[in-house]
Amino acid sequence: MVELLAQTGLNAIYAAAYMSLIAVGLVLVFGVLGVINFAHGELFMIGAYVVVAIYADFQMPYVLAAAAALVFVGAVGILMERTMFGPLRDNPLGGLVASIGFLLILQALVSVQFGVRMEHVPPVTQDVIVISEKVRLPVQRLAVIIASIVFLSLLWIFLRKSKFGWALRASAQDREAASLQGISITRISIIAMFIGGALAGIAGALTAPLISVNPHMGHSVIVAAFIVIIVGGVGSLEGAVVASIAYAFVHTIITTFWDGVIADIVGLALMLAVLIIKPTGLFGTADRA
């Protein structure tokens, strides 16, 4: 029993790691641009397909493919800002609808290029750290955990210590007041979309060898990401990370001991409970809600 719990805990940490990368990017984009990017899950999917193309098909090194996913999906984020969210700056609902359209375009492009079947990404390494007979941690999963911690730490340092990091946080808290400090909303939106895209892309690249890669894989993560953001508090980056960890533990434990569908139901029920008890989310402040 102890061993089963330990194994479940490791699985949950892995799930929390990549879920945090996705949720933090979505929160950052919502905070700075004021728009809900429904295509965020598809940015995650594109990251995985960059690995399919570069690592699985062209047989280039995996690290190169992951780096390419980060840059490429970040660039897709910038493209979205320039073509949709920028022109629709004062129309958040329009931005949301445009992102739903873009989501369908991305799914269609990937389906045309790669087909709709699940892609097989060969494992980067088969090594497994054997902690005990029943507690094992594949090195690939460990790499996801470590990489997520590294990327989240880098983001944290950027937001706390750099001038543009301050500008991002200021813009997320009060966009108009930020523009009165000389912060260009256009530039800051581009930076936010690059970071949000890059984090979703690297999450897709990191998990590509471990999960089923298909054109619709963005759907399941976006639902989880929304639950995490609402529980954590809309606009709170710290809240998103903490809620990711909590959600991943609850979800993984329920999936292990009962069933995945029940885990989804519990996740949504948790979100509902938070909305009823504390509508601003566990870490959100009232003025953002």
Partner: peptide
């Protein structure tokens, strides 16, 4: 900016 510190608020003013 409610969630920036006093110092960060002031430095934001000097952004340019």
């Amino acid at each position: 900016f409610p969630d920036l510190t006093v110092e960060e608020n002031l430095r934001t003013g000097a952004f340019l």
